[in-house]
Amino acid sequence: MAQYQHEGDAVTLDGVSFRYAKLLALDDVTLAIRTGVTAILGPNGAGKSTLLHLLVGLTTPTSGSLSFSLGPDSLTRRDRNRFIGFAPQTLDYYPNYSVTDFLRYIAWLKKVPARSVDEAVEQSLIRTDLTQLAGRKLRALSGGMVRRLAVAQALVNEPSLLVLDEPAAGLDPEQRIEMRGILRSIGSQRCLVISTHHVDDLVALADRVIVLNEGRITFSGDVAQLSALATRGTFGDTELERAYSAALGISGPSRSD
């Protein structure tokens, strides 16, 4: 399998900026991703998805540098993809494929050795609780099942760097709890980067939190450090929400007041 045991930082961003025409989506971001769960928080348009796309190599920075330590130094961009898994916010697929076909296809794209494909697909199905749906056509999956499939396909190559864009978006509370369990089980031995709107997810999952606002990092630290930002007069119902508001620089009357 492709997993590569790296030491230190898996991905390092140094002064990275990214611009869509006139819009500056990321502004001078310096960041290191290491083993454990890194949660990226931020409002809509903060630059979370852009940052994730940079991390997985879907886009390249307008300025600044991005370095990977996911495998041997001689890796080409294509070969590096063997060590990366990415679950986009919206998973695109051919609806005529079955769940197993789709995972096999992604395993082929990721160059999972032919002799390991069966096991890799089975493990992905088990981890995401999709075993019962293995033969089902993708067009017949519900929204929650598709979210789990997105995680399953990102896992199929046992990536060293796993990047999940809003994995809990659109899920009902029960499904969110299930998803959290899945992420907890897979996040302990690799670099897992998650973007989320849900501050509550952090407590259960994140080793490290990064708050993005208008393309800039406004907070970087662990959950306890984030919680310490919560003060009276910031916006939110819970301590973490108030801390998040503080990290974003949003002030206002707390509803608990």
Binding site: R78, F86, D92, Y94, L109
Partner: peptide, 14 residues
């Protein structure tokens, strides 16, 4: 049309 090109770009195959 199905926007699956991103899977190809993220793949290790050419």
């Amino acid at each position: 049309r199905r926007r699956t090109a991103s899977h190809h770009r993220l793949g290790a195959r050419t």
